[in-house]
Amino acid sequence: MLKFFRKVRKELIADKKVSNYILYAIGEIVLVVIGILIALAIDNANDQSIKREKEQIYLIGLRDEFRTSKIKLKELITFNKQSYEDSKKIVAYMENPDALLNEQELANLLYNAFAFDISFNPNNSLLEEMINSGSLKDISNPRLRILLTNWISNIEDISQQETMLDKERNKIIDMFRTEKNSIKTIYDLTGVSKELGLPVSSESASNRDILLSKEFENNMLMFILTSIKTETAHYNPLMQSMEEILKTIDGEIKE
């Protein structure tokens, strides 16, 4: 095609047909511009295709991460609930210590309430990598970008709440580090001593007197309040946010 136009141009110049040559030159320029625009359109289409493929990879990875985090959060909510429910049972026995069946029951309640730290550890490696590398902009859905950004700040808020909860738990545990109470009794009666390879005492010291302690009651009440607030004001809203993120991601993935 270009050879043909060059031949025509030479003939027009040789024949000194200036007006026709000008029209030809304009036509040639138009063709060149059209060619450039077509090339740019093709390049742009290729770039968009690459971006969409990259976005799909990110979306699938994010979906896997949030599904795993959702399972973790469900388990954590269950542990936290068991913790404050058993704590409430202990407080109830403080009102009526004679209703407590035996030392075994108290040990089980204390162990279930305070043996496990409550800490949410979501799978955020891909999301953090995207944020740090600026790849979050590759997510085309603006609503999803906002949800993912808010997710990080929500996790930071929950971490602060869990720190408060941990402090309340430690106040109670510290009361068993004194001469008045016995961690060893709790270990022996719940089977922890055997798991740790520790000898089981033939005679266990009783922890029943702690039910008469006003300090213990105060600490228990603060722990219960903080535990319930952690669930209702933090974990439950976080679960709702996670479900919305997963629903939005599913709507963007092209299966």
Score class of each variant (00 low, 15 high):
I50N: 05
A99C: 01
R6V: 13
S19A: 11
G134R: 01
D157Y: 03
E129A: 12
I253Q: 04
E156F: 05
K247S: 10
N132K: 11
I34C: 08
I34P: 01
L109S: 11
K10R: 12
N236T: 14
E252C: 04
A205P: 01
L148S: 09
L110S: 10
Q82H: 06
S69F: 03
E28R: 01
I158F: 03
N108M: 09
D98N: 12
L100T: 09
F4V: 13
K254I: 15
V30R: 02
D47S: 10
F223P: 11
D86T: 15
K51Y: 07
A113I: 05
L37G: 02
R63V: 04
I155Q: 05
V18N: 12
R9K: 14
P237V: 08
A14P: 00
S83C: 06
R67I: 07
K54R: 08
T163D: 10
E217H: 06
M175Y: 00
G35V: 09
V18F: 14
K137E: 15
N181M: 06
L189M: 13
L212A: 15
Q48V: 03
L148H: 05
N112Q: 07
V33D: 02
K72D: 13
L106E: 08
N170H: 06
E243S: 10
A113Y: 06
N112A: 07
L127G: 09
S213T: 09
A233I: 01
R67E: 14
I146R: 07
I183D: 05
A115E: 07
K17W: 04
N20S: 11
I42P: 04
L238I: 04
N108A: 04
V33S: 04
N150E: 14
V200D: 06
M175P: 11
N80D: 11
L101S: 14
I152W: 01
V91Q: 07
E255P: 07
W151I: 10
I50V: 09
K180V: 04
E28F: 11
N218L: 05
R177I: 11
L2R: 10
N123W: 00
I155F: 09
Q161I: 10
Y187P: 01
R208M: 14
I22M: 14
N219M: 03
N46L: 14
D47A: 11
L189R: 15
A25H: 01
I71Y: 10
G134W: 01
I152K: 06
A115M: 10
D174S: 12
T185E: 09
A92K: 13
F114S: 13
A107M: 03
K247E: 14
S201M: 09
N123C: 01
L109M: 09
